[in-house]
Amino acid sequence: MNWVIENLPLIGQRTLEHLALSIPPIVLSFVLSVPLGWVANRYRLSRGVLLTVLGLLYAIPSLPLLIVLPIILGTGARDSINVVVALTLYGIALMVRTTSDALGSVSSDISQSATAMGFSPWTRFWKVDLPLAGPVLLAGIRVVAVSTVSLVTVGAVLGIKSLGLLFTDGLQRNIVAEVLAGMVATIALALLIDAALVLLGRLLMPWARATRTSSTRRSRLTAEAAAS
């Protein structure tokens, strides 16, 4: 416990570094998955090809990917860009399938009604399909966010700065408190980002919570109508 109190500034700094490596992959994988997921959902052929390629990408273990990426990107072996790219790839691998499924689950009755109301395909996508897919997308990006935060630590064995350095340093110097502090901070950060996403979801999709009440009210109304 003493170690934690004496090294609070260090933990704070590592947390900030960790955050700086976690946020870009989460945002990037969401932004890139929407068009890719649309393509995957729209065309049967592209769905099979895309999902297979992404599935294989996801199968590549993180440490080897961090080592192989520099020769593809031309970056330095210990460059933090490698972590951002690797985690974005994992994020996309998870999110494209979710996005494709979410868009596919929008009822065709609704899509057709929107078309009949005069929505162009472009506005229909943004105003009807995407909002309706929202709750599933939120569930997907929450999974991506939590696993991204925990995977950032792997870069520490290559010397990339994050909370993971507390693990490697703790092992070398045999300080259990340091490793534990790193774990607690990583998990807390993951939960914090997760909570932020839930909050964001509530702000952006107020209807997602209202659905339940309206459906119970509807059932109550039908029950009253049946009784009278």
């Binding site: 630590t153 064995v157 993971g164 490697t168 092992l171 259990v176 998990i187 997760d194």
Partner: peptide
């Protein structure tokens, strides 16, 4: 199963190894 995703694998390995 959801919560375990947040657990950093490297940290877990090291903590068990130190133990």
């Amino acid at each position: 199963t959801g919560g375990f995703r947040a657990l950093p694998t490297l940290g877990l390995l090291i903590i068990v190894a130190l133990w």
